[in-house]
Design a protein around this nucleic acid. Sequence first.
DNA 1: ACTCCCGGGACAACCCGTTAGT
DNA 2: ACTAACGGGTTGTCCCGGGAGT
Lengths: 180, 180, 180, 180
Amino acid sequence: MTVDTRDRLLEAALVMIREQGITGLTLDNVAKAARMSKGGLLHHFRSKDALVEALLRQLMDDFEARASQFYQQESERPGRWLRAYVRATFEDEPLPLELSLSLMASVTENAVLMALVRQDFEHWQERLLNDGVPRPRATIIRQAADAYWSERLIGVAPDEPEARLAIRDELLALTEAGHA
Amino acid sequence: MTVDTRDRLLEAALVMIREQGITGLTLDNVAKAARMSKGGLLHHFRSKDALVEALLRQLMDDFEARASQFYQQESERPGRWLRAYVRATFEDEPLPLELSLSLMASVTENAVLMALVRQDFEHWQERLLNDGVPRPRATIIRQAADAYWSERLIGVAPDEPEARLAIRDELLALTEAGHA
Amino acid sequence: MTVDTRDRLLEAALVMIREQGITGLTLDNVAKAARMSKGGLLHHFRSKDALVEALLRQLMDDFEARASQFYQQESERPGRWLRAYVRATFEDEPLPLELSLSLMASVTENAVLMALVRQDFEHWQERLLNDGVPRPRATIIRQAADAYWSERLIGVAPDEPEARLAIRDELLALTEAGHA
Amino acid sequence: MTVDTRDRLLEAALVMIREQGITGLTLDNVAKAARMSKGGLLHHFRSKDALVEALLRQLMDDFEARASQFYQQESERPGRWLRAYVRATFEDEPLPLELSLSLMASVTENAVLMALVRQDFEHWQERLLNDGVPRPRATIIRQAADAYWSERLIGVAPDEPEARLAIRDELLALTEAGHA
DNA sequence: ACTCCCGGGACAACCCGTTAGT
DNA sequence: ACTAACGGGTTGTCCCGGGAGT
């Protein structure tokens, strides 16, 4: 049972970004990494942007799935989605969204892709702002969570397990604490 | 009083990023925007990376200066630097750090530039973590602040004045509030 | 019967060198001379050095073939390879090794290409030094032969048929004459 | 007593070629090596070709001087100049003509420089062909001598002292031996 | 005599996507 | 479904030389 070719290509694209950064994400490279010709790649994705779009969608869907799972396990008190969001973000697991930052930057210049990102952003924003927690507080929590892996990606912040857990727990606490 | 040519070039580079994104930051474009030949540009900055490095340095220095100013005006209670950092970030005026995200992504692939960024990061991190506020809390505050303008840059979050102020004030409050 | 594209490109490269010297050997020129786009050229030769390498290999192989042919026709007395070498060099027809000097100079700066040349050199050197002729004498003969077309290439020495034949015959004689 | 600036520049040019090959011979590099600005360099040599010309002249004059010295010490029998030429070439000393090959290649494309080289060539050719030795033999001797250092320059032939002396002596012998 | 600044042009390498063909 | 060939365009880097100024 062969793996779906499309998935193989997406996987290859991920690898390229991980290993060579956004600059390494060229059709030629991806094709080569998937042991296929560029023509073959373009047969599955009409253009580079189409490839990136598929990549983005996959990452978003993954995160959505992961967060939803945590949501189920979370108590019904206010801040339920926020906590799910925080937990999903701080999971150390596979972390398939490994790249977002670099991807983002490349997304910026394509209106269609930007719309996609913005839409996902708003989708979450709406959920998190109507979660029973004062909006500024909710925003801050989301932002801190987002920044957390942004920084991890750039490799700017050392990733110490204890520190990470402390931050995560502080964020979780902030979803419940009385508001200053 | 002629403006220094180097500064004119730096300024032009900023403009290019602002208007066309990172992709627009080409030597040709910058030179043209500064009404100079590419040869002239390369006389001042030996390579594109040299240009970007100068850009980064300038942005960092600007922010440093701005934050320091707020630091002076801030009370001596714990969290003094954090509050200065938050205020400097949420200022709407100058906003010279316009771009970071896109710049970051391009920086990622050059070790020297990365070192520069990491160094600046650690410089601030040390200051903010030893500011009399519990470290996880301090980190969260910095992260939320950073994310704030990141998002503004991507243009993903609408920038409503009242919302912004609310968030800023919440962050300032968090520098003082009892710790959960 | 379409000529192989690769060969057409190689041929075009030769022409450029012949007509404009090493400086004329630019990707643009070669592509243009072969009536092809630079993109197309780079599809066949990944880099300029790759093109030069192919060129060198072809010239070496040509010479090898030509010399081998003379070798077959040569008597078995000592100096058989030397005589073949001399004859192959002084042939006026094909002269495909047209350029060596200029090529050499450009080769000098690339380690890989240098290795290629050196290898070919040693290959011949071994053959010619173990050909039944005292080694210093053998070396001199090879050197004179090499210099012959080097000079012709630079265009420094007028190419008079009688003179050429006289030199060739003297060299052939030196492969047999009693040794001083 | 400061060394003449012109000479310092010429020396620097030599160094550049020796260390970085012909490609390294740029006005910028030479100027930097001589701790001077490019403008300064161009003040002494109107153009790059002018610099190369001066270089060539110096090398030729050096060789001329060296050969003449040997000529004085040589017996008056036929082949006197040839022997001087051979001795001058095989001297292991300073060898300031260290480069000729690469220089030649760069010279090829400038008619004026070519004329200079050709003139020097003919000057020697005349001397050597009217030296009491049969012309083909004389030519061969010169060619072998020329090739000797050509090969040393390209670094293609290992430079073993005994082998070198053997070749030199064989060449000297050829200037006197009965003709095959 | 020498420096700084700059223009103008070239060149190698890369990259995306189309097309003919299998 | 997939490959090979190719075109057209862009970008970073380099390099030579001229001109203003000291």
